[in-house]
């Protein structure tokens, strides 16, 4: 018990990092996801194809693998390019590694973007076809109809699933421990390594995740109720 109390501040700081990385990633993921979701519904074949590749690749591979590709794989390629440039043009080497925080943001944002893309796509497709037709019949372009008629309605419907995506990613950020990003779970691991109190510490870690998830799902429920009445 004493160990738990002593390690609580460290774990809570980890929880803050977990929340940070999740918030940043879902935010960037929303921007990526809106772009990819619209691209998947585009008239242009090439856009549709690229967006489908992105979404399928991310959703078809584990986040853990994506994280190690970004942190270990990509820098290796960059270093090889660099050493070629050093030999060929005599530039001084400057790149060694991606900072772990940046790697975490890139991997989680790309991951989140693919799931958010599907959320947006479904949200847009759930809007009655008559809305687009009415807008077009008034002389609006496809873009105007999207912007003023379809998207404002889709955004409302998308908020609850976006909340769920946030919760899912919040838990999944624990895989960032493999690249040494000191979020909640990684800090738990480190404390266990020093104290051998696996049961108490991991249970505490689980409990902190649980509290965060419950708080957020309540918030999502609340938003959902409010949006229903405002419809």
């Amino acid at each position: 018990m004493e160990t738990v109390i002593h390690s609580l501040p460290v774990l809570l700081l980890g929880a803050v990092k977990t929340l940070q990385i999740t918030t940043i990633s879902v935010f960037i993921g929303c921007i990526l996801g809106l772009a990819a979701g619209l691209a998947r519904l585009s008239q242009r074949r090439i856009l549709r194809f690229l967006a489908t590749c992105y979404v399928d690749f991310i959703r078809g591979t584990p986040l853990l693998v994506q994280v190690v590709i970004v942190y270990f794989g990509i820098p290796q390629v960059l270093r090889e390019i660099q050493s070629y440039l050093v030999n060929a043009y005599g530039i001084t080497p400057f790149f060694k590694n991606i900072p772990v925080f940046l790697a975490a943001v890139i991997a989680c944002s790309l991951n989140s973007g693919a799931y958010v893309a599907e959320i947006f796509r479904a949200g847009i497709q759930s809007i009655d076809k008559g809305q687009m037709e009415a807008a077009r019949s008034l002389g609006m372009t496809h873009g105007q109809a999207m912007r003023y008629v379809i998207l404002p309605q889709a955004f409302k419907r998308v908020i609850p699933p976006l909340g769920n995506e946030f919760i899912a990613l919040l838990k999944d950020t624990s895989v960032l421990s493999v690249i040494g990003f000191e979020e909640l779970f990684r800090r738990g691991q480190l404390i266990v390594g020093a104290t051998y109190q696996a049961f108490q510490i991991y249970l505490t870690v689980a409990f902190i995740y649980l509290v965060m998830v419950i708080a957020f799902s309540r918030l999502v429920d609340y938003l959902e109720r409010r949006l229903k009445t405002g419809d």
């Binding site: 008559g130 809305q131 037709e133 009415a134 105007q144 008629v149 404002p152």
Partner: peptide
């Protein structure tokens, strides 16, 4: 060419007034 639909297709997130002024303003 104005069009009126069987199922109205008003924009549900806008008031009657906003429904009417949208296209004249944006288009």
């Amino acid at each position: 060419v104005g069009m009126v639909f069987q199922r109205f297709n008003l924009f549900p997130h806008k008031t009657a007034l906003e429904n009417i002024i949208l296209a004249p303003m944006k288009v």
